[in-house]
């Protein structure tokens, strides 16, 4: 059996906060991620995502429980681990602020003790793939956010790590920049089989990049499985956007759907439906019996919506069943 890229058992971390007692940021997290998986680690702000990542990297010491990252104890073997993983904290920089981007890459290659020819080849490849030729000589502090994020990802990949951990890599990026980063990450993973762990608030990141989702809520694992499975579990199906030929009442009685919203006095209506329980054709014909349909669009499940629903269920105490149902 191969060593898991990430393995935690009952991993817990609490903080003492003055005047408010202990806060358990990560609570009994048990999870195993196989090499080559692409995992989206999602949850609300303060759910414990960043704390988990910091324990995986050996930055934070767990309060209790066990963690192994690429088979190593992250705290005891921090430096050996650093050679095997690449980390990007989206809101921080690992580059040298006052130096040209290219020099940061050279420094990082030296820090990872890469032989110079290998370092050169790897840096050239990353510069080409991430389209960074134009600004290699620019000091980091003068880069745009999109340019800097590409450089950060390259910096985390220079030593060809087995595991890439990205903490909100697309935060603040425009649509085009996000798109380019995602495309690069898909290519890079296809070529090297790099394991990916990604935290994000951006559903697009998860949909495009991840084949497995871990959802945390108040430090606890609330869901582990595919995005489709998550949507099915909490009933957030696809959304059908209907443009009708005339304004009218809300379509609340269409079998297998749930009315979400109406605009323009009912001219445009949004219905949630679950493809596992009904078909698009059945929904459309049911709508067609009561109203004239001019145009139709189908939207994929919105992650924020899915997450919100999981939280509502967890607040209602249905958490355990929701997670069990998908095993």
């Amino acid at each position: 059996m191969t060593t898991p890229a990430i393995e935690t058992h009952d991993l817990t971390r609490s903080f003492r906060i003055r005047g408010r007692g202990p806060l358990t940021a990560v609570d009994g997290l048990t999870v195993s991620i196989a090499p080559g998986e692409a995992v989206g680690y999602i949850g609300a702000n303060g759910a414990g995502k960043s704390t988990t990542i910091k324990m995986l990297c050996g930055i934070l010491v767990p309060t209790s429980g066990a963690v192994r990252t690429v088979g190593l104890d992250p705290v005891a073997k921090r430096r050996a681990l650093a050679a095997r993983i690449g980390v990007v904290f989206g809101q921080r920089t690992q580059l040298w602020w006052d130096l040209p981007v290219g020099e940061s890459f050279g420094l990082l290659a030296a820090i990872h003790r890469m032989p110079r020819p290998a370092a050169r080849a790897r840096i050239d490849a990353l510069v080409g793939d991430l389209d960074m030729e134009d600004y290699l000589a620019t000091p980091v502090r003068q880069l745009s956010l999109g340019q800097r994020m590409r450089a950060e990802i390259a910096a985390a990949l220079i030593h060809s790590p087995d595991l890439l951990i990205l903490d909100e890599p697309t935060i603040g990026l425009d649509v085009l920049s996000k798109q380019r980063l995602r495309e690069f990450l898909i290519r890079e993973r296809a070529e090297r089989g790099t394991t990916l762990l990604l935290t994000t608030h951006d559903m697009g990141d998860v949909q495009r990049l991840c084949d497995r989702i871990l959802l945390v809520d108040h430090g606890r694992l609330a869901y582990d499985g595919t995005l489709d499975g998550l949507s099915a579990t909490v009933g957030a199906g696809r959304v059908l956007v209907l443009d009708l030929d005339a304004p009218g009442p809300d379509l609340v009685a269409i079998p297998g759907t749930r009315h979400l919203a109406s605009e323009g006095g009912g001219l445009r209506q949004r219905l949630a439906y679950d493809a596992a329980h009904t078909s698009l054709g059945a929904v459309l014909s049911a709508v067609g019996e009561v109203r004239g349909v001019r145009d139709v669009a189908v939207e994929e499940p919105d992650i924020e919506d899915v997450v919100r629903r999981v939280y509502q269920r967890s607040a209602a105490g249905e958490l355990g069943r929701a997670a069990d149902a998908t095993d």
């Binding site: 921090r78 430096r79 050679a83 040298w96 602020w97 006052d98 820090i111 003790r113």
Partner: peptide
């Protein structure tokens, strides 16, 4: 870090020193 890699260890620190020097030059 008792398990830290050893050997050939000086060059990164030398380059960091140079980077510190050059950062000031900005």
């Amino acid at each position: 870090d008792p398990g830290a890699p050893r050997g050939g260890a000086v060059r990164p620190y030398w380059l960091l020193l140079r980077a510190g020097f050059r950062s000031q030059a900005a």
